[in-house]
Structure formats: structure tokens, C-alpha cells
Simulated scan of single mutants.
Amino acid sequence: MSDATGPGFHKPVRRPADVFDRLFGTEDPAEVSRVAHSTAAALLSRVREEPDASVVDRLVQFTDLHGIHDIAELWSRSPARTLPGTLWRLYLLQLMIHDDPRTAALLFERGRVELSTADIVVAGAPAPAGPEELVELSDTILRGVFEGDFGVALERAAAFCRIEADGATRLADDYELTEPERATDLTARALRLSAFAADLTAAASLWRRDTLN
């Protein structure tokens, strides 16, 4: 990431963001979209229909083992409120925590003590939650995508994002006068997390209506 508290969700992508152009440069954009949607649907349905612990473990650990670039090739260009776009955001969220769990814990704890919403309960993190607990939480949420209630997993991820966004916003306010560049990075991170929360909440609703495609 660009720095310990910067907004960067994209630095872990180890190949250029235009990888789709290279892989499918001669294809119609509709074909790129079809590949993204079909791979996401096939993966999710296959694993959820016959959940195997070792397969789920490998999927949860995928970015640790292989990086994010393989997933980026499949899903990063998909609209947010689609199945591939949702899976992409869940993996980015997990990677954000794994890549810098100390900052994630700092933001989460700040948001946890300030918020008076039900998000703390929905996210399901212990209080207080340190770096190790947040890594475990991110893996638990992703595991729920493959072997639990998908809608609940999305709502937990959205709640987590809202808590982190609140913590980032409050820290940005703290740094506004003394470290304006850091405050700007934190504000950008808060905005990104808030957008993720809205997209994941919408995706949960679409999933329950059987319209998340």
C-alpha cells in the first residue's frame, strides 16, 4: 500500500489494471463481461453445492498463495453490484486487512468506540479487536461466502467497511492540521470503504432477490 494508512486498495494488484485489454484485446467487451460473470457463477455454485473444507481453505487463502492478479484478470472490470464485482471487492477487502492488519485494527477500534450503530454486532468482531483478530475476521467473512449464508457474509463485510470508514474519517480529522497529506489519504480511504459498504449492502439485497448476476 502507498503508506500505512493510505487508501490504496490497488497496489497489491501485481499486474497492470488493463490486464483485460491484453488478455481479451481482440474480443468484444460483451465477451469479457460474459467470462467474468460465468467464472464467478461457476465458482460460487460449484463450491456452495459441494463444500469441501480443503477447497474452501484454498479459496480463502488464495491471495496469500497467489496474489491478487489472477482474480483481477477475471473480475476487476465488472460493475460493483454484480456477482464478479462483489467477489472482487471481498477479496480486496481481505487483502487490505492481510496486507496491513495493524492499520486495519487501528481504524476499526477507533470506529468501534465512536459508532452507536448495530454494525459492531453485525461485523462480529471481538472488542477490542487487534490485528490478528481482524485477519481472522476477514477470513471468516470470506469463508461464509463459500459455505455459509452469502447474504449474511456480504452484510458482515459491509458493516466492517462502515466501521473502518468511520475510524478513518475520525483519524483524518485528527491529522487535518498537523499532517494534512495523511489526513487526505485517510479521507480517501474512508470514501472508498463507504462505497464498498454501499455496494456490498446492495449486493446482499440483490442476492436475496436472486438477481445478483
Rank of each mutant, 00 (worst) to 15 (best):
Thr63Ser: 03
Ala41Glu: 04
Phe108Ala: 14
Val60Phe: 02
Glu132Gln: 12
Ser33Val: 04
Asp21Thr: 10
Trp88Phe: 05
Glu50Asn: 05
Phe62Ser: 02
Glu109Gly: 14
Gly25Thr: 07
Arg81Asn: 08
Val113Arg: 10
Ala72Lys: 06
Thr82Gln: 06
Val145Phe: 05
Ser54Ala: 04
Thr39Gly: 03
Asp57Met: 04
Leu43Gln: 03
Val35Arg: 02
Trp75Ser: 04
Glu133Ile: 08
Arg77Asn: 06
Ala41Trp: 04
Arg48Glu: 08
Leu59Trp: 01
Glu133Asn: 11
His66Pro: 00
Thr26Cys: 02
Glu147Tyr: 03
Trp88Pro: 09
Leu134Ser: 12
Arg110Pro: 11
Leu83Met: 07
Met96Asn: 11
Phe146Thr: 11
Ser38Thr: 01
Thr103Phe: 12
Ile120Arg: 01
Thr39Glu: 02
Phe146Asn: 13
Val113Thr: 15
Ala30Leu: 09
His37Ser: 01
Val32His: 00
Arg77Thr: 10
Ile97Leu: 13
Gly124His: 11
Ser138Met: 12
Val122Pro: 15
Pro131Arg: 14
Val135Leu: 15
Glu27Arg: 08
Val60Asp: 06
Leu44Val: 00
Asp70Gln: 02
Thr117Ala: 12
Arg58Lys: 02
Pro29Thr: 08
Ala105Trp: 12
Phe146Glu: 14
Asp70Asn: 02
Pro128Met: 11
Glu147Cys: 12
Tyr91Ala: 07
Arg81Pro: 03
Val135Cys: 15
Leu93Asn: 08
Phe146Lys: 00
